[in-house]
Design a protein around this nucleic acid. Structure first.
Length: 788
DNA sequence: ACGGTTATAACT
DNA sequence: TAGTTATAA
């Protein structure tokens, strides 16, 4: 029978992690009763971590700091930092990364939470046994290790165990530890018996001792650990001797331990399932579960849980340690309890903006550090009076890392929840929770090459393009994906360049004539080399390990552009090769072509949801966007909104929004020349008319664009997106956004337009947040393309 | 008014 | 399938 003892699995848990982080920042707090609390106004703030000294006073997590002070008057209270008006856990996440980094030197790890990680030590143990040859395992290598179930009480001692134990405190505890450890080690076979389960646990424990020592040395943080054959046992073991200790749990000690261990102590059984088990089977501890036949458990708890329980109560479990150091989603949320609930649209918008700002910051950092891009945005809310778990959530494609965009998309996703109606200032029922999160990460390089493939495709068959639907989220595997072969990337550039050249070669007569076109023509012909220079500067930054650029990114780019007139593509290639290498290493997975898949989906046709309302938003994700987001973690000056005239109505234009009906100069160009075209408003009188077959729908913004203008149009998306990636938008100062979307309507298919409209408006109040811009004339992307 | 997050199984 | 909800930590 498979008892799953072939693996060595450890769970490492940082001791009161947040407290340790605060103590490292402020050493005054060390060795004192100390808690970390967030917020202050309500009862002194809620406690989220408690030092062991404070626990001795009965202070616990989820207690109000004011109440804790009553139990422990000398309690030190560290506060969670706040930014964007909410608790900000950044420093704990960073500390967590430090720790995981160290742990990864010893084995593959699975990040279980901010302060916990599982490790599969099986391979490391085998390796160590090779080194160990025939030498015995030294007890000195296990100085903080307990062995659960040891020392084993002898027959005679069993009666008196009560009296003996209660006597002293700490000193004898270690004596007992050593006694148990020695006893167990004496029973181990020689290290030549490499496959012995307990021997492997012992070696695993030695490795974990070393690992924990390294963590403390390199980060200053202490932790506890459990070492056993599976995740459940490791987790259980970890909790047996905290803090700053580790515990081996041999399978042979499981029956004793489980006999009398409440079901709720087992991972996954701490909640309703655990209760339902004890009620259904009328049992109290896990050990008792072993009395039930498999069939019975399956009947009661299903095909998945039944067998799991059957094995589990025998100490057997097979859940693998998933190799994953990074979180699979990045999110932020804030509660608005009781009277603080959000009861006006302005409050909702304001807080969505705050959350969006944090999300953008974190996503951008994540992209820079981890080379991946989230593709799905989820917004969740809870309304006053709702049950604990009850909530509402909707999602859409996360097209760009842009706080403003995230914010407006989020609002669009939830605005149907406002019973007061969209035009009212009131919001009811009020929200008691807002949550934003980004997930479905795609590897940056894959995203890039996938986009390129799509780009190529559109190169060949530019018609037939349908707007990118929000529901069509790229289906990346949950982890990273391998990069494309450089050859493909190369061919992309060759094709793209060729096409760019061609298009600029002969624009049809009379097709372009506006101010915007003029302006465009003023600039030199865009050569592929110029686009390349963007990639070069970007790739350089990436190779350098870039953070934020100092500031004068624009200048830098210009310089580079000017002198790098004709750089070879070789350098660009090396960037992409680098990128794909980074991807490939460490992550093996999935071979299929995302772009193809996406295109297939396109062709499959429209939104499949047809019933009633659909809050989803068109994404308009472009290849260029993906490229930009992948390669350019840069920020630069923002652009001033521009204003153009379109048949009498004045539009304020957000320069970085290719979705707006009138956006950049490029878009404006299109706007003008497509007067009377398929996508022009019916009330406008055509200035030029072209046959319907002259138009292609822009995959990015959905507009019908004249075929020969498409390359330019695409380039402009690209350019705008570059800018978007540099400027990071949103006023952090503006208390209440002036950008209330009044444009809205209930007409079903104008969801995207509504969003656009509100975004357009909001640009008016847009102020430079992270990057100041010179007052007056904005620096448009053209700036980079032109020699001034 | 038990916060802010993250993960995963179940459900639809 | 993909998206939403429930549950757990």
């Amino acid at each position: 029978m498979d008892t799953g003892t072939d693996r060595v699995v450890a769970l490492v848990d940082m001791d009161c992690f947040y407290v340790q982080v605060e103590q490292r920042i402020n050493p005054e707090l060390k060795a004192k009763p100390c808690v970390v609390a967030q917020y202050k106004t309500w009862k002194g703030g809620g406690i989220i971590a408690v030092s062991y000294e404070a626990r001795a006073f009965g202070v616990t997590k989820n207690m109000w700091a004011d109440d804790a002070k009553k139990l422990c008057p000398d309690l030190q209270v560290a506060r969670v930092r706040e930014s964007h008006g909410k608790a900000d856990l950044t420093c704990y996440r960073e500390a967590s990364s430090e720790v995981l980094e160290v742990m990864s030197r010893f084995a593959v790890i699975e990040r279980a939470s901010i302060d916990e990680a599982y490790m599969d030590l099986t391979a490391s143990v085998k390796q160590r046994l090779d080194i160990l040859v025939d030498k015995p395992i030294a007890i000195e290598g296990l100085m903080s290790t307990f062995v659960e179930g040891y020392p084993q009480a002898s027959e005679e001692e069993e009666e008196e165990e009560e009296e003996e134990k209660v006597e002293d405190a700490t000193a004898p505890k270690d004596a007992l530890r050593i006694q148990g450890l020695s006893q167990w080690m004496d029973s181990l076979p020689p290290t030549s018996q490499r496959t012995n389960a307990d021997l492997q646990l012992a070696v695993g424990a030695v490795i974990i001792e070393e690992m924990r020592a390294a963590v403390e040395k390199d980060t200053g943080f202490r932790c506890s650990a459990g070492i056993s054959h599976n995740k459940v046992l490791a987790k259980l073991a970890c909790g047996l001797n905290k803090p700053n200790r580790q515990t081996i749990l041999p399978l042979s000690s499981v029956p004793q331990l489980f006999n009398g261990l409440p079901i709720s102590k087992i991972r996954h059984l701490g909640g309703k399932l655990g209760i339902s088990i004890s009620e259904t089977l009328n049992v109290d501890n896990i050990g008792e579960l072993s009395k039930f036949p498999l069939e019975h458990l399956v009947e009661k708890f299903g095909m998945k849980t039944g067998p799991w329980l059957y094995n589990l109560c025998r100490g057997i479990e097979f859940e693998p340690v998933k190799p994953r150091q990074l979180p699979k989603s990045i999110g932020c949320s804030k509660n608005f309890p009781g009277k603080t609930s959000l009861d006006t649209k302005e409050k909702v918008q304001y807080w969505l903006q705050q959350l969006s700002l944090e999300l953008e910051e974190r996503l951008t950092k994540d992209r820079d550090e981890n080379g991946r891009i989230a593709k799905l945005l989820t917004v969740a809310v809870k309304q006053a009076g709702e049950t604990k778990t009850g909530g509402f959530s909707r999602c859409c494609t996360l097209a760009r890392y842009d706080a403003e965009r995230i914010s407006t998309d989020s609002l669009a996703l939830i605005k149907s929840l406002n019973c007061a109606g969209n035009h009212q200032q009131a919001w009811s029922p009020p929200f008691t929770l807002l949550h934003l999160s980004a997930s479905k990460f795609m590897d940056a390089a894959t995203s890039l090459s996938g986009g390129i493939t799509g780009f190529l495709k559109s190169d060949i068959a530019p018609t037939q393009q349908k707007p990118f639907l929000s529901s069509q989220v790229p289906n990346g595997s949950t982890t990273q994906q391998p990069g494309k072969r450089p050859g493909e990337i190369m061919s992309f550039f060759q094709n793209a360049s060729k096409r760019t050249r061609q298009c600029h070669a002969e624009p049809p007569e009379g097709a372009a004539s506006t101010e915007l076109n003029n302006q465009h023509e003023k600039g030199e012909d865009k050569k592929p080399g110029e686009i390349m220079s963007f990639f070069q500067s970007a790739s350089k930054r990436i190779r350098q390990g870039h953070a934020e650029p100092p500031e004068d990114t624009a200048t830098e780019l210009n310089d580079q552009h000017e002198k790098g007139e004709d750089k070879k593509t070789g350098e660009i290639m090396s960037f992409f090769q680098n990128a794909s290498k980074r991807i490939r290493q460490g992550h093996a997975e999935r071979p299929e072509d995302t772009a193809t898949e996406l295109n297939d989906q396109h062709e499959k046709g429209e939104d499949k949801s047809e019933d009633g309302e659909d809050d989803r938003i068109d994404s308009h994700s472009t290849i260029a966007e993906q490229v930009v987001q992948t390669v350019l973690p840069l920020k630069t000056q923002d652009c001033s909104p521009t204003t153009i005239q379109t048949d009498g109505s004045t539009h304020t234009i957000i320069p970085d929004d290719p979705c707006s009906s009138a956006t950049s100069q490029a878009d404006a160009t299109i706007h003008t020349i497509t007067h009377g075209g398929p996508c022009a408003s019916s009330e406008r009188s055509p200035a030029f008319t072209f046959a319907p077959e002259d138009y292609i729908r822009c995959d990015s913004c959905g507009q019908e664009v004249l075929a020969w203008e498409m390359p330019e149009h695409t380039d402009y998306h690209f350019a705008q997106d570059l800018q978007t990636s540099w400027s990071s938008s949103l006023p952090s100062s503006s208390q209440v956004p002036a950008n209330i979307s009044k444009a809205n309507t209930s007409d079903g298919n104008s969801q995207c337009k509504t969003v656009q409209a509100s975004r357009r408006k909001s640009a008016t109040s847009r102020t430079p947040a992270k990057m100041k811009k010179p007052a007056g004339k904005g620096v448009s992307i053209d700036h980079f393309f032109k020699k001034s």
